[in-house]
Nucleic acid binder design. Sequence first.
RNA 1: GGCGGGGUAGCUCAGUGGUAGAGCAGGGGACUCAUAAGCCCUUGGUCGGUGGUUCAAAUCCGCCCCCCGCUACCA
Length: 552
Amino acid sequence: MADNRPRFYVTTAIAYANNQPGLHTLYEVIGADVIARWHRMLGDDTRFLTGTDEHSVNIAQRAAEEGMTPRAFVDEKVELFRSSENLLAITPDRFIRTTDPDHYRSAQEMVRRSHAKGDIYLGTYDGWYCPNEGFRTTSEVLETARGTICPNHPEVPLQWLTERNWFFRLSAYQERLERHFVDHPDFVQPDFRRNEMLGFIRSGLEDLSISRAGGGWGIPFPIAENGESALREDGSWDPEAGTIYVWYDALINYITGAGFPDDPALFAHWWPADLHVIGKDIARFHTIFWPAMLWSADLDAPRHVWVHGWLLVKGGERMSKSRGNFFDPNDVVAALGSDGARYVTLAEVAFDRDTEVSWESFIRRYNADLANDFGNLVNRTVSMANRYLAGERPGASDGGTLRTAWEATLPVYRAQLEGCLLHAALATLWEFVGAANRLVDAEKPWELAKTIKLGGADGESAALRLSAVLGDLVEACRLIALAGAPFLPASAPRILAQLGYPYPYASDGNAGPPLLGELAWGTHSGEEGRLEQAEPLFPRLDVEPDPGLAPG
RNA sequence: GGCGGGGUAGCUCAGUGGUAGAGCAGGGGACUCAUAAGCCCUUGGUCGGUGGUUCAAAUCCGCCCCCCGCUACCA
C-alpha cells in the first residue's frame, strides 16, 4: 500500500432496516456522499461507508407479522435503501450490513477483547417487558387503573422481567471521556452538541447491558456464562449465551467497514475514522458509548463526530416514517432529478440544526438556484459564445472582477464544506453565480457584438472585450461546475462538455487531477476547444402538490 | 420536573449593546445573450410577552408563554 496521499474515512449512521427510506434518513447520506466526493476529487485516499442496521427484536417482530424470516424481511428493506441511494447517486466504497459475516466476526471480537480487559461482566437487568417490543423504559410505559401498559400495545399486559446478561463497564471510562472531550474540543461538533454530551458524561455514567437472553435475531454472544467460548463443537453458537445487544453490534460497523478484524493492514490504514456523520438523536451512542467501547478494545476513538439536525415539516414537527409526513426520496428524484434532489436537500436544510421544509420550498429552491441562476447562467454563456464567437472557446482574462471574486469565494467555500456547513458552502458558491450573472448585464455582450460589426478601432477593442468577458464567463461556469461537482455529480460532466472540456473524474469523483489545481482561475485557458450547443440543465418546474403528503 | 435547541419581514433563516438584514415570494422598471430566466429599484417586521440594567437591547439580567428534542438500553 504505497500510497502517500492524505487519507480520509467518512461514515454515516447505518439506517434501521425496518421500513422504506425517507429523505430525512438519506439526508445525512447525501451530505456524507458530498464530503466523500470532495475528498476524492481533492486527491485524498478516501473511504466512504454507509449501510444498514438489521438486528433487534423489533425487526424480528415486524418480519413475523409479515410472515417472513427476519433475513428475507431485511433483504427486502435493504434493497429499498440501495435503490433509493442509487437514484441519488450515493457512491459508498462499501455498503455494510450488520448481517454481513465479517461484521459478525468483528462484533464478536470486540466482545472478546473487552471481556479479556475485564470490562464485561455478568449481571442482571430488570424492567418492564412488552412481549411485542422487548424491554421498555419507565418513561415509555403508562400507569393505568388496569396496571402498567405499553402505549403501543395496550391490550398486552406488561411483564416485570429480570434477565441475566452481560454488562459493559461504561462507568470505568467516565474520567477518560471527560478528559478526551476537554483535550479534543472539536471531537464533537457543533459546539452545543459537544456541550450536551459533556454534560451527560459529567452527570455520571452507568454500565450498559450489552447482551440479550436467548438465541434471537442478532449476533451470537461469543462467550458463555463460565467465561469460555460459546462456540460449540459442531461450529454453532450456544443459544444459551444469548445475542449481542443491537446497539453494541451496530456501532461496531464502523470498524468492520475499515477491515477489522480480518485485515489488520487495511484496518491500520483506515482507522481511526476521520468523520462520523450522525443525527442528533444518536449522539450519545457515538460520542460516549462508542469511544469507551473502542478504548476497551485498545482502539482509538474516531477523530470527529458531526451531529446534524432534522428535517421538520410546517409547524416544527419532525419528519418521520411513523408520522407519515416524510418525503419519499424517489418522489423527490422524480421531480427534481438526481442532482436537483441532492442540491435542494442540502441547500434548503441546514447541516447543523433542524430546518422546516415543504415540498413547495423544495420546488422554489430548485427553480431559483438551479433553473434560474445557475442553469440559465451556463445556458446564456454557452449560447453567447456560440453565437458571437462561432463556438470557439475564449480564454479567461487575468485581471477581471470575476477572478477576484472567485479567489475570495473558493477558500470560504472550501472551509465551509470541510467544516460540514454544507448549506453555507452552497450559499457561498451561489454568491459567485450571482456575480457571474451580474457581469453579463454589466458588460452587455450583445452590444459589444454590434460594435464589432461597425468595424474600425472601436470594433477591434469591442472584439477583445467580448472575448475576455465570455472567457471569464466560461471560466466561471467551469469553476462552479467543478467546485459544485460533489453536490451535482451528474451535471458537472454535462457542463464541462458544453464548455468543450473533457471531464477528468470518475463517476464517484476518483481518479482525476487534484481538484484544487483545477479550481485555480484560468488553469486551462490556454487550451483550445469548441463549445457544444447550449442544452438546458435544470428545466424550470411548476409548483405541484406535495406527493409526500398527498393522500394515498 | 431537569437539560438542550428554537420563537426576527408572507416563507426559510443571518444578526450576542449603537439608527432592523439576506435569499425566496410579491410590486415596479430598463434590457434581450438566456430555461418569460438574468439585471436594477421596491413593498414588507412594535425582533414571542413582560419587567429591569444601560446614554443606547433583537442582542445583557429576571419572570412568563409557545414549539421541538433528550432525559440511558426501540433504533
